[in-house]
């Protein structure tokens, strides 16, 4: 009648991608302490990303940005009941091993931290914990999936409060998927070459008309309208980093962005949640940035 405890398979592809599927239509919020994590959960976040500094502060402070202190991650895990994610540096499988041992629910191999390897990303198949990776275009997304990523997020430009790069990356990924879906069999080989991605994945995307894993959006979302925009463009969920806790009223911004993500195509509700919100995080012009985080990753 019931399955024994020994007949269970953990850490499978299906289980890893499955959690990403459950987060669709939701908001994943960056938090730097247990108090913020609670604010995020109370506002309806589907998950939190535990880190020491939000991207806007990493940008301001400079220096090497690394994985968070385990004590910080544990404090956040102990206060919320929703999934807790944490970031490892690109290629830093040592940090990823620590995060897996901490039993975080997802690891973000993130360009927001300083890369540890300028050629290799983490071999994510070697882990039971699922990974999310950033991408600026379809080729990058497929390379990350071939390394074992179970979720892709468009990179945008983190810590800027400027949605323009997120839009650029989403449009690039989704536009190429639409073109690929109409390519004939000979053209698909050329696509694989151009994208520098495995042919099997190119085939799969062509057949399904979408990535084999969920595609979320990150990097620059600062208002409910930003969330609605990227959801209408085809993102399946949103990551909000500095946009909530750098705003004038974090609990209200958090709640409003959750509502806007759920009701992204309903202007009446978008008006309601946007009204009288107060100051969004201060934004930055992309052309004036010293560091373009989205350029990290290969």
């Amino acid at each position: 009648m019931q399955t024994g405890e020994n007949d269970r398979e953990t850490g499978t592809l299906r289980v890893k991608r499955g959690l990403a599927e459950m987060l669709r239509g939701g908001v994943i919020m960056d938090v730097v302490n247990a108090h913020q994590a609670k604010v995020a959960e109370d506002a309806g976040a589907v998950a939190v990303m535990a880190l020491e500094r939000v991207p806007a502060d990493i940008r301001r402070d400079g220096g090497v940005a690394r994985m968070s202190d385990p004590a910080l991650i544990e404090a956040i895990q102990s206060i919320v009941t929703i999934p807790v994610m944490a970031k490892a540096r690109i290629g830093h499988f040592g940090e990823a091993q620590i995060l897996e041992a901490l039993r975080v629910d997802y690891i973000d191999e993130s360009e927001v931290l300083t890369p540890a390897d300028e050629e290799h990303h983490i071999d994510k198949w070697a882990f039971k914990v699922p990974f999310v990776c950033g991408a600026t275009n379809l080729g990058e997304a497929l390379r990350r999936i071939s390394e074992g990523a179970a979720m892709i997020r468009s990179k945008g430009e983190a810590g800027t409060g400027n949605v323009v790069e997120a839009v650029r990356h989403l449009r690039s990924i989704l536009g190429d998927i639409r073109k690929l879906a109409t390519a004939d069999s000979a053209e698909r080989f050329a696509w694989a070459k151009r994208l520098q991605a495995p042919y099997e994945l190119v085939e799969e995307v062509a057949a399904r008309g979408r990535l084999p894993v969920p595609l979320f959006c990150a990097g620059g979302i600062a208002t409910p309208a930003d969330a609605a925009l990227v959801m209408q463009l085809g993102a399946e969920a949103v990551f909000v980093g500095s946009g909530i806790f750098k705003s004038g009223d974090p609990p209200r911004f958090a709640r409003a962005i959750v509502e806007a993500t759920a009701h992204f195509a309903d202007p009446e509700i978008l008006v309601k949640v946007s009204r009288g919100l107060g100051d969004a995080m201060p934004g930055a012009e992309i052309s004036k940035l010293d560091t373009r985080l989205a350029e990290r990753g290969w």
């Binding site: 269970r8 398979e9 953990t10 299906r14 289980v15 959690l19 039993r103 975080v104 914990v129």
Partner: peptide, 30 residues
């Protein structure tokens, strides 16, 4: 989250009473 965090998420075959055609392949996510 009765089984724990994501690392405890699993798949397994499961007999469901009243369903014909063999066990269900069940995916349990948190």
């Amino acid at each position: 989250n009765a089984f724990g965090r994501q690392l405890e998420s699993f798949e397994a075959d499961l007999d469901v009473e009243g369903l014909e055609g063999g066990p269900v392949h069940a995916v349990f996510i948190r």
